[in-house]
């Protein structure tokens, strides 16, 4: 059978492979190449070695956006997962409307980042108007605004994953724990959470990468204002490419570093999931 299938290569694989080479491989290789060059148009590039990387480290806005992103990611991972988990614990019970509430909490997840950004801009500016300020007044408002926005968007998604996990806990296990005299907190701590570990790993890493790669919401909510102080990494890279003439090479170098960080997170996840599976 292998032979019959193998002959179908041009029809089965080629379309995807060609698109993949054009849409990913070539841009990726070109990107790595250009990160070592100075250029404004790609037909005229000058090799500068690690010059772009050195310039990047001296760029205050980049270093600031890196720390801003790290801090944002930490806070958003914790808040989203804690809220999603608590809501999941209630919404996995059987009561009137539980299903409808799940549907409602999940809904913001489907709305795109740009739309979300403007929805929350009007809400948060409306609240801040009581003190005569706006989101653009200080980076901390943009920060907490973005935290609220991302919580609103992602709690429902993570909740669904947690509910699916909680549902898979065998009822007999909970019953026997109850017979052994375990209270509801005990049961949660020693039965439910250990079984939920895969769900927790998935949700943690999803929120981690979502936080790190955040772009649309950041652009629409504050656009980096005031004076780039609420700019996250992805937006900083974008602005370096399209906002500063002659800095395209530096932008590409930043993108390479960004990629290495995101890839490292992904590999740690892979490792974490694998080793957990081996334990079981």
């Amino acid at each position: 059978m292998k032979r019959t299938v193998r002959r179908a290569f041009p029809l089965f694989v080629l379309p995807t492979l060609v698109a993949f080479i054009v849409g990913f491989i070539i841009p990726f290789v070109m990107g790595v190449y250009l990160s070592f060059h100075k250029f404004t148009v790609v037909t005229n590039t000058k090799f500068v070695g690690f010059g772009n990387y050195v310039k990047m480290m001296g760029d205050q806005s980049f270093v600031h956006s890196l720390w801003y992103t790290v801090l944002f990611t930490i806070v958003s991972v914790i808040t989203i997962n804690v809220f999603a988990f608590i809501i999941a614990l209630f919404l996995c019970k059987v009561f009137k409307g539980a299903k409808l509430f799940r549907t409602i909490f999940f809904m913001p997840n489907l709305i795109g980042g740009i739309v979300l950004g403007y929805i929350w801009q009007i809400i948060l500016n409306g609240i801040l108007a009581h003190w005569n300020i706006t989101l653009q007044y200080d980076a901390k408002y943009g920060f907490w605004g973005l935290i609220i926005l991302m919580n609103w968007q992602q709690i429902g998604y993570m909740m669904i994953i947690y509910i699916a996990g909680i549902m898979s806990v065998p009822t007999e296990l909970l019953e026997s724990a109850m017979i052994d005299g375990a209270g509801s907190f005990e049961r949660l701590k020693s039965v439910v959470i250990p079984i939920l570990r895969p769900s927790i790993t998935i949700c943690t890493f999803l929120t981690l990468t979502n936080g790190f790669k955040l772009f649309d919401q950041n652009l629409a909510l504050t656009g980096g204002e005031p004076a780039k102080s609420s700019e996250m990494l992805a937006l900083n890279i974008y602005n370096t490419f399209y906002g500063r003439v002659g800095w395209q090479g530096v932008g590409q170098a930043k993108a390479v570093i960004f990629t290495i960080i995101v890839a490292a997170i992904a590999f740690i996840q892979l490792y974490a999931t694998r080793s957990k599976e081996e334990q079981m």
Binding site: I26, G31, F241, Q248, F258, T259
Partner: peptide
Amino acid sequence: LFAFSMVIPFQMVMYTLSLV
């Protein structure tokens, strides 16, 4: 290579992809 491309953020290829 497909698996590898899944972890690459769009910013890495955004400039060159738009050129291509």
